[in-house]
Simulated assay, not measured.
Amino acid sequence: MAKPCGVCAGVRRAVETIERALVVYGPPVYARHEIIHDRHAVDELQARGAVFVDDLSAVPDGAVVVFGAHGVAEEAEHDCERRGHDVIDATCPLVLKLHKEARRLADRGYDVVVVGRAGDDEVDAIASRIPGRVHVVSHLADVERLEVADPARVAYLLQTTLGGLDTVDIVAALKHRFPRLATQDGDACSAVHDRERAALKLARRVDAVFVVGSGSAVTTRRLLEIVAASGVPTRLVENAGAIEHGNIDGLTAVGLAAGPSTPDKLVDAVVARLKMLRPVEIDVLDGVEEFVRFRLPSRLRHAGERSSPGLGGAPLAPGAALSHDR
């Protein structure tokens, strides 16, 4: 198994927020788009009363609304205020940090370049909070087309769900064109990058790699592409039942990797399935230790912060959590 493997702290917090909101306020609880890119997890939440909508206009006035880990644009926030929605903000604290950093850079007179996928919720949310000049760069060719007020005052921010392999060329091109390029203060989110790097390390040790997760998740698809490009036979495993004897015949060592939107429970189910088919010895490779655990929004904490049954995993030991709140 790769390390780290599976759901990140921000996604875990968003799912736990909906679960706790359903307990505290009762169904229905609304959220814009699916809170996690895993069909099984979404189906479980829907069965308990969560309602996922593509447009917040579909939410009845005054209803409980949860903002997911990637956040929403400011206009969506204002619309919720106008319609009297009871909003619980589960935006990942690391994404909120980007919101604040974007404003700080714009206030200092920088043109802000957001390196990310145009139209993505997270990118739209960041860009909407920049009162000055903002540019979204998705491809290397976009760098040459940039028109800025002052080449000496350009800064960039990275979408959290992009890995290092997707951004290294763009960032290099930005630094070449704008030698005084500035970036955010402090650490950026490394969840995607760490999982990609761990999966590539895993690929060098095994006969084949199973990438566990939903094909609808961008980070899972990208992880699959990166591992496959390394030359090792690679297979997407969306559920444990997809693994049959024929998938592992002739293999001595199989690697399991999973992106930041894959629940722990799904990874555990795949391991259990392999154990049913063959004798298995589990070897977790050395990798990045993730001790980060984000606290639930303050209004939900009185109901407890135990680990999510939908995502699996045990609570952190006292003192191990890095706590954030909005």
Rank of each mutant, 00 (worst) to 15 (best):
A2D: 11
C5Q: 09
C5L: 15
C8T: 12
A9G: 12
A9D: 13
I18F: 10
R20A: 06
G26R: 07
P27H: 00
V29M: 04
A31K: 05
R32H: 10
D43E: 15
L45I: 12
L56H: 08
A58Y: 03
V59W: 08
V59F: 10
P60F: 02
G71F: 15
V72L: 12
A73H: 10
E74M: 13
E75M: 02
A76N: 06
R82V: 15
R82F: 02
C92Q: 09
V95R: 02
K100D: 12
R103A: 03
L105F: 00
G109L: 00
Y110D: 00
V115E: 11
R117P: 03
G119W: 07
V123C: 12
I130H: 01
P131G: 01
G132T: 00
V136H: 03
L157I: 14
L158S: 13
L158V: 15
L158C: 05
T160L: 10
T167P: 05
D169T: 08
V171D: 06
F178M: 10
A182C: 03
T183W: 03
Q184A: 14
A188E: 15
A199S: 13
A208F: 00
V209N: 05
V209G: 14
F210S: 05
A217L: 06
V218G: 06
T219E: 10
T219H: 05
A228G: 13
A228L: 06
V232N: 08
T234R: 02
A240G: 01
G241A: 14
G250F: 00
V254S: 01
L256T: 01
L256E: 04
A258W: 10
A258N: 14
D264F: 10
K265C: 13
D268L: 12
A269M: 11
V271K: 09
A272Y: 12
L274Q: 11
K275R: 14
V280W: 01
V280F: 00
E281W: 03
D283L: 14
V284A: 12
F294E: 11
P297G: 13
P297D: 12
R299I: 08
A303V: 07
G304A: 02
E305G: 01
S308V: 04
A321E: 15
H324C: 14
R326P: 15
